[in-house]
Design a protein around this nucleic acid. Structure first.
Lengths: 143, 143
DNA sequence: CCTTGACCTTCCCGTAACTGGAACCCCTAT
DNA sequence: ATAGGGGTTCCAGTTACGGGAAGGTCAAGG
């Protein structure tokens, strides 16, 4: 297979596939004309990489996953631990985004969103603590 | 104020502050010795930037927010729209992470995590659809 | 007066994971 | 011969900084 065909089959852009070769994730053969030639196994590994990447694994994690995949004597515990760590990262990211979301949502709700210049969002970002009389206004939460 | 003081006050590293000047987010004065001198207003704007960044706004969004903040004739609707768009991005990101989480969680649950090499996680990443007999095994979801 | 140490300056490189584009080669069909 | 649709390499840009080198500045102490 040429790069175009494997790109179509895996859904990865040719550029990405070349990049993966450059960083040593795959090692396709070369024809006499200099073209890359991809085996079924190459295509399979690229599809594996595509799925791993779409699940948020970094390239280096993918490298490890691929090595474990190739190692028929691996312990599934090693794979599981890696994925659990990744899961923890994702949970942390989700929590962070939820916090942002909550703050932003409060700000948006407080903003009239009309032609007038007065804007609680900007006041919040500016660190304003609320004027006397706004008893329920609390400082904006930021990490 | 020198850069160290404003860094301490805003919580932003000096490197970041220099970077913000480089890309034109702030324009501190300079002393005869070449040192940056930060006004109260500079410090205030940097704190504003720090909060906006911590809420996930990109630098370019921060640039717009800062301009709106400075524009006393702005319409709060412009601010609100920007923040709502950002909120939508965050929601999209959260949804994406939840999908990853669900898939990864299923894979982790299916993996024994022991000394044996058999690993449903790797089989899932490899695109395996499940063997005959595993009636409930469905193809892994990926975007 | 000199030195020391903390602070400041600029400049350049590196990060993650690609994407876009230029310049050029290869193969097939007309 | 040429046109097109592949392929190739290499270079630059992206985001938002962080690390580190080489060197100027300032205040305090001996």
């Amino acid at each position: 297979m040429n790069i175009g065909q494997v790109a179509e089959r895996t859904g990865l852009p040719p550029k990405t596939i070349r990049y993966y070769e450059e960083i040593g994730l795959i090692r396709p053969m070369r024809g006499d004309n200099g073209y890359r030639h991809f085996s079924e196994r190459d295509a399979h590994n690229l599809a594996f990489l595509g799925r791993a990447r779409s699940l948020g694994f970094t390239i280096e994690e993918c490298r490890v996953l691929l090595a474990l995949y190739a190692d028929k004597g691996r312990a599934s515990a090693d794979v599981k631990r890696l994925v659990q760590d990744h899961l923890a990262q994702i949970d942390a990211k989700i929590a962070e985004l939820h916090e942002m979301r909550a703050t932003l949502s409060d700000l948006v709700d407080a903003c009239a969103g009309d032609h007038r210049p007065d804007c609680p969002i900007l006041r919040g970002l500016a660190g304003e603590q609320g004027r006397a009389g706004d008893a329920d206004e609390s400082p904006m939460k930021v990490r």
